[in-house]
Nucleic acid binder design. Sequence first.
DNA 1: TGTATTCCCGACTAAATCACTCGACATTGT
DNA 2: ACAATGTCGAGTGATTTAGTCGGGAATACA
Lengths: 147, 147
Amino acid sequence: MLISTKGDYGVRALIDLAKHEGEGPVQRADIARRRQVPESYLDHLLAQLRRDGFIRSTRGPGGGHELARSPADVRLLDVLESLEGSLAPIGCVADVTDSGQESLCGQRWVWQGIYENMRERLSGVTLAELVEHERDHERDAAVNYSI
Amino acid sequence: MLISTKGDYGVRALIDLAKHEGEGPVQRADIARRRQVPESYLDHLLAQLRRDGFIRSTRGPGGGHELARSPADVRLLDVLESLEGSLAPIGCVADVTDSGQESLCGQRWVWQGIYENMRERLSGVTLAELVEHERDHERDAAVNYSI
DNA sequence: TGTATTCCCGACTAAATCACTCGACATTGT
DNA sequence: ACAATGTCGAGTGATTTAGTCGGGAATACA
Ligand code: FES
Ligand code: FES
């Protein structure tokens, strides 16, 4: 499994923040409830996202978390690499994007290609798009229900 | 990490068998030495590959392992799914390829796409191609060395 | 000043998975 | 018979996953 709950939950949290942008800080407890993430676990993920500059947090009553940048400027790739570390599908293609030594193992080129394609796709998706997608889906569900 | 040593070593072993096709059974010890895999570990991987019909094994002196099918008919995807189980990059897209319930999590569609692309690529690569690639690389190395 | 609210941080843990090893056993060629 | 080979399952130490817990720090407000 390339993506664990760290990455999944973390992205869920950012989607939640993006959805409530401009409404002031959003509290951990609200994110946890809406996105079905254990609150005390979410805590660690928010800490990581703060360390890497994705969110700003304020304490005290009325405090909470907000995006540090516009949702359109936050790439899914960067979020996931912050939370999960390298997204390499196999150890040997981790960082070394240079094709210096094809080396020993005859299947490495296949994974290089897959990795690059994956990173490209993840680069092309922003928080803004994820939120839009979600809204579209909600609207569809509402229509289906009303019928 | 999507692919562990199981998948990597297992494919290495099959590449070795493909390279020595038609020369009679290849022994575990030879594969292990040539491909840098612990012999007693390789044992388990060969067992799995046998269960799923990729290789045939014979005991006794002069025994060993051979491919059960032509290298051109063995897709990398099938080998890896035999050794690793599902190659889904995230749990929720494991088997359910049907897009029945987009459900809760707003990033699932991204991973669906990545998963499908990955499976397509892995479907398009056969053992025969891996061997050819390896031979090409060996030839290049020889040329470079001779200069 | 006191108190409630919220985030911050590190320690701890149970369960699962990984990457193997080891030993007993089965089969086969000479 | 015996040596060479594969077959099988149990066991193991290290690492990762998916959390929990508790104490502390900052802030708003009365
Ligand atoms: S060692 Fe990287 S693909 Fe085999
Ligand atoms: S639950 Fe599958 S992508 Fe979030």
